[in-house]
Amino acid sequence: MLNMLKQIWLVLVLSLIFGAALAYTDQSTKQRIAENRQQQIRELAQMATVGELVRDEKGQAQFKIELKKLELSDKTLVAYEVLPIGGKGPRVGYAVIGEGIGWDRLLVLIGLSPDLSKITGLEILESRETPGLGERIKGDEFRAQYRKSAQKPLELVKSTPTEDHQVMALTGATISSEAVTAMVNTAVGKVRKAIQSNNKN
């Protein structure tokens, strides 16, 4: 036993040192990383609701809104109430994060009007689709199609849309387009249900 301890002491000492180093790194960067995430979500939420984001010379975003996380019974759903900066004035809208799978994990942020009747914007939070094909879901033209009434579930079509609730799929990127549409439908449906039940209580 003593012989074995002689052999493994190095592993134990290194584990201790590196464990401490990792814990320290985690502690010292945790807040910053969370802030980075939050900042990104806030930027996209402003884009999806207000529709524009001005940056100063240093590239710092000039925010007009702030986010308040909604406490929902559905814990899998992440949604924010979008309020004007300082919390004064009427609600700007809602921001919901939709999750799904295209070719890889996809995260989108959907902006909704204050009465939840309209989708005000769609932003891609995280995507690793194929560049040149699926990655075109990031393009303005495709995302602009989603700015429409949220009363009826959206439908993906492969030709020019004839009805208002239809969205045209990207050529050569049907799977990614389908994934985004499905995510939007699910997330909007869920958030509407959750907010309405919250309001009743």
Partner: peptide, 30 residues
Amino acid sequence: LQAHLRILVYMLIVATFVTVADYMLQAYLF
């Protein structure tokens, strides 16, 4: 280094530095 614990030690060391690098990137080059 003990021959049979060598790789374990390598992985411990490498994993630590990679995690540090990853956290630093996330914090400063998001």
